[in-house]
Design a protein around this nucleic acid. Structure first.
Length: 411
DNA sequence: CGTCCACAGGAATGACGGGCGG
DNA sequence: CCGCCCGTCATTCCTGTGGACG
């Protein structure tokens, strides 16, 4: 296919009418099955229209339950209503997982209100001071949305939240309220009581979608994004069912639908079928894992290789100590320094956070306390991704062989 | 019912790179 | 341009602990 033909195929897609409406950052005008949540968020934030400070708000719900979409949707309506009323309401959105240090979060907030700050070099206190200084010269209501805020607190404590929750004391006419979004239901309990009572003035829980609701969401979105009649009847129910299995994650469901369409298009097929969905599922998983593995530090990769080698055969799990021994052997054969067991423990924790292994702490009594570690992604994909790092090449053959060697099932 | 294993996990450290004020 | 301070990353040090064994 020539370059021109590729471009032409994209422009005159037989499959998609508006592919971008399936992307994660697209906020549709209608959010099916979230009427209750939309109303409650709107009620909470509405006082901003009178220039009053809305209550701080905390939102809980698993990934893909529409938290971000609902908040963005309401804030978009709110700011446009406000400007038609001549009131200043500003929404500031920060995803804390992507900007995962206190400094970067504050820098983002500063940027959003037009305060230029350098990437680094300032103390967080200084950035905070500049935000306060800028806001105290203004009036209006500022709604700061901290998405996935649990990531920040887990690593850096609730210092930033505490300061932000008290920012109004230092301001003149401007008013700030905070909307925190989190995936973790137990998050609020980990906060300092002062912060908790201040930030949790209002709380809303987003329940997961069930398969039927996911189907409604997908159907509404498919009408916008696909040409009529290109989806086989079973495609949407299948995507919905697969995502429902993953605790009702609408983002997963939409990704699945989009990638299915992309695969159909790439293959030159005129309809999207079940087989495209199955291929999409595989492709999404492969991309996710290989992206994570690629960004892992070298020792993280070696630890992951060790876990893979120790679990791929008959055994389904391994423990920290076994992983460490195997890992040391790998570093010896490559001829590099090894890190301490503490660090390996930390790396295992990071792999768990990335969703590539699962680990839980158990006590084996007389035989000590350890973590039970299992792979949480397809082993074949993990090993395949590890092969891509040239530094691991000298040992990857052995890693694969060791794993297969245990296939018989005896210790 | 105390011991003690095999780690977990908090706190501290050091290297590094970048901005700031003079 | 220099010395200083800060955040970040990768790492080390060290204290804490659930529960089977004896």
């Amino acid at each position: 296919m020539s370059v021109d033909e590729i471009f032409e195929a994209v422009v005159s897609s037989r499959i998609f009418r508006a592919r971008d409406r399936l992307l994660p950052d697209y906020i549709p005008d209608e959010l099916p099955h979230r009427d209750v949540q939309i109303r409650r968020v709107a009620e909470t934030l509405a006082p901003a229209l009178r220039g009053e400070r809305p209550s701080n708000l905390f939102i809980y719900g698993l990934t893909g339950t529409g938290k971000t979409a609902v908040v963005k949707h309401v804030i978009r309506r709110l700011t446009s209503k406000a400007s038609s009323l001549g009131v200043t309401v500003t929404g500031i959105y920060v995803n804390v997982r992507h900007r995962d240090t206190p400094y970067r979060v504050l820098a983002d907030i500063a940027e959003s209100i037009g305060v230029r700050v350098p990437f680094t070099g300032l103390s967080t206190g200084e950035v905070f001071f500049r935000i306060v200084r800028a806001l105290s010269r203004r009036s209006g209501v500022y709604i700061i949305v901290l998405d996935e805020v649990d990531f920040l607190v887990r690593r850096y404590g609730d210092d930033v939240l505490y300061k932000l929750s008290r920012i109004n004391e230092d301001l003149g006419r401007a008013r700030v309220s905070i909307v925190g979004i989190t995936n973790s239901v137990s998050f609020m309990e980990s906060l300092d009581p002062r912060v908790r009572s201040s930030l949790g003035e209002e709380e809303i829980v987003f329940p997961p979608y069930n398969a039927g609701q996911l189907r409604d969401i997908l159907e509404a979105r498919a009408r916008e994004s696909f040409h009529p009649g290109v989806l086989d009847d079973e495609v949407i129910p299948l995507c919905a069912a697969l995502a429902a299995r993953e605790h009702g994650d609408a983002r997963r469901a939409l990704d699945l639908l989009r990638v299915s369409g992309e695969i159909a298009e790439r293959r030159g097929d005129s309809r999207v079928t079940r087989s495209h969905v199955m291929a999409a599922r595989m492709e999404i998983e492969r991309d996710r894992v290989s992206e994570v593995v690629k960004t892992l530090p070298l020792h993280g990769k070696l630890v992951l290789a060790s876990i893979a080698a120790l679990t791929m055969g008959g055994r389904t799990y391994t423990t920290t100590g076994d992983v460490y021994n195997y890992y040391r052997e790998l570093t010896r054969r490559i001829g590099i320094e090894h890190v301490t067991q503490r660090r390996v423990s930390g790396l295992i924790g990071e792999l768990e956070m990335l969703g590539i292994v699962s680990a839980r702490v158990i006590s084996r009594g007389r035989y000590g306390k350890t973590r039970i570690i299992e792979l949480a992604a397809d082993p074949g994909i993990i090993v395949g991704s590890l092969w891509e790092d040239p530094a691991l090449e000298p040992v990857m053959g052995d890693v694969e062989r060791d794993a297969l060697g245990k296939g018989g099932g005896g210790v």
